[in-house]
Simulated assay, not measured.
Amino acid sequence: MIDPQRSTPENLVARVRAVLPSLTPSAQLIARLILDDPATVARSTITELSAASATSEATIVRTARVLGFSGYAQLRLALAAAAAHQGPDRLVPGDLAPDDPLSDVIAKVTRAEREAIEDTAAQLSPERLGEVVDAITAARRVDVYGVAASGLVAADMAQKLLRIGLSAHAFTDAHLALTSAVLLKAGDVAVGVSCTGETPDVLEPMRLAGKAGATTVAITNNPRSSLAEVSDHVLISAGRETAFRPGALASRISQLLVVDYVFVGVAQRTSEVSNQALRTTRDAVDQFLTDPRTRTRRP
């Protein structure tokens, strides 16, 4: 649920997008209108929105409450503030079309990536991030689970933490992830990466990791997902799905941004050790690249 005390013009639409998959079908109709044109919804009476969404006025009120508002009037005010702060062009990015020239592709993809980054930053609580950073800093071991596009993010997180001296491992195979999860202990950290928060290959290892006593962290677009429910800490990423960029791909940049937040936070907390580890690992790679024996090609 959206906390109205934390809702701002910068994060309102992003938060509505995040909870969209978990809403009822009728509530999704209303939420999609908000995402498609929040400025118009802000100008609409409840009767006008009822007609536009083909839902009842009672459904609109219930949807507003699910989103964290006392009623439709409060939601309208928040949407009006968002429209005034960001402008309609920011709130309704253009979708990609099959016949778009490459100049438009560059502009639209750049815009979508920028907005995903901005929306992720707007939603992320420094307090919540700090709790995750504390847990990872003190961890004996950090295991990260993800598949497909989220698997790439899991690998990125593991290699970053490994570079600063932490014992970190990424698992993109469900069987290996399950093996990892049951061997974790109190003081270890398990991180699950999933755009929808409903990926079975990530969900089950996270459940088992929690049962084993590990601290669990979710990186997901959906704060009402099953992954969020089984995790001790939830970090929300953002990404707008388009015709040529399904949800998992659209979220990749924002998930990587969340990983960078965590990595930098941990590196700050362990600056002496992490700086030494970075120098040592960089020197090892540099020596490998400059050693003439490593450049000798076999026939």
Rank of each mutant, 00 (worst) to 15 (best):
residue 226 S to W: 02
residue 202 V to Q: 03
residue 221 N to A: 07
residue 233 H to L: 07
residue 252 R to A: 15
residue 193 V to Q: 03
residue 207 R to N: 10
residue 217 V to T: 01
residue 185 K to E: 10
residue 258 V to F: 05
residue 246 P to Q: 12
residue 177 A to L: 04
residue 206 M to Y: 04
residue 194 S to C: 07
residue 222 N to I: 06
residue 220 T to H: 00
residue 252 R to D: 13
residue 255 Q to K: 11
residue 205 P to T: 11
residue 206 M to A: 06
residue 249 L to Q: 14
residue 198 E to A: 01
residue 262 V to E: 03
residue 205 P to Y: 05
residue 181 A to T: 04
residue 207 R to P: 03
residue 177 A to V: 06
residue 199 T to M: 12
residue 228 A to G: 11
residue 262 V to S: 04
residue 254 S to F: 01
residue 218 A to D: 05
residue 195 C to V: 13
residue 217 V to G: 00
residue 184 L to I: 09
residue 257 L to T: 10
residue 244 F to G: 12
residue 208 L to K: 06
residue 233 H to D: 07
residue 269 R to A: 01
residue 208 L to A: 14
residue 225 S to Q: 13
residue 179 T to Q: 15
residue 216 T to P: 01
residue 194 S to P: 02
residue 190 A to W: 02
residue 217 V to I: 03
residue 265 G to K: 04
residue 247 G to S: 15
residue 272 E to A: 15
residue 194 S to D: 04
residue 249 L to V: 15
residue 271 S to R: 14
residue 226 S to K: 00
residue 225 S to P: 12
residue 198 E to W: 02
residue 257 L to N: 08
residue 197 G to Y: 02
residue 255 Q to S: 08
residue 242 T to C: 11
residue 257 L to Q: 12
residue 263 F to R: 01
residue 233 H to R: 12
residue 202 V to W: 06
residue 209 A to E: 00
residue 207 R to I: 10
residue 208 L to F: 05
residue 263 F to L: 05
residue 222 N to Q: 08
residue 228 A to D: 07
residue 260 D to T: 11
residue 243 A to M: 13
residue 263 F to H: 01
residue 245 R to T: 08
residue 200 P to Q: 10
residue 237 S to G: 09
residue 267 A to H: 02
residue 185 K to Y: 08
residue 216 T to D: 01
residue 237 S to T: 13
residue 247 G to A: 13
residue 261 Y to M: 13
residue 260 D to Y: 10
residue 234 V to W: 00
residue 230 V to R: 05
residue 241 E to L: 13
residue 193 V to G: 00
residue 178 L to G: 15
residue 229 E to T: 10
residue 193 V to I: 14
residue 216 T to V: 01
residue 222 N to S: 10
residue 255 Q to N: 10
residue 190 A to R: 05
residue 261 Y to I: 07
residue 192 G to Y: 05
residue 272 E to S: 15
residue 258 V to G: 04
residue 194 S to E: 05
residue 269 R to S: 03
residue 226 S to H: 04
residue 260 D to W: 07
residue 253 I to M: 13
